[in-house]
Amino acid sequence: MPFAQPLEIQNPDFTKEVMAQIDQVIKQYAGIPGSLIPVLTACQEIVGYLPIELQDYLSRGLNIPGSTIYGVVTFYSFFTMVPRGRHTIKICMGTACYVRGSGEILNRIQAGIDLKVGDTTKDRRYSLEAVRCLGACGLAPVVVVDDKTHGGVTPDKILDILSRYE
């Protein structure tokens, strides 16, 4: 029964501090109907991703079936079950950005730093996501790195922009 083991032993990402924060979130939301998505959002902010062992832990804490949690995690694109890099690159694939060449920017990243959509580089420096319209169409094409929005990006500029994020 691997799930019966404490999370700290199963996965080194779960340090004592992380566990304390997760328990705090569970305490805050347990028993409130409809609180699963806010709990998952909070946990992903703490840990960076939602591995299956964490889902099992939440299932016990919130008294929600593990299958329901897994169903929700896999349904929403915001949630991820694999670790993310230190910097998340989001390329807008909305219509306005697409028409203005975001596909070419994507190709350049894939060729330049060997990173595919949905993946993380081996050194966990970058994760790459192709996302839905970010609503900044006036600046198309748009690339968001972490919380910073870069507008009017061209294939030539993109690798230079990324190199600023260590």
């Binding site: 109907p33 409809g34 609180s35 998505i37 959002t41 929403y76 915001f78």
Partner: peptide
């Protein structure tokens, strides 16, 4: 706060989502 699903703009889906499903 939504969690990234276009279909949640549909009214019944949006309500399911608020219910945590």
């Amino acid at each position: 706060q939504g969690a990234g699903a276009f279909v949640c703009g549909e009214e019944t889906a949006l309500m399911q989502s608020i219910e945590g499903k």
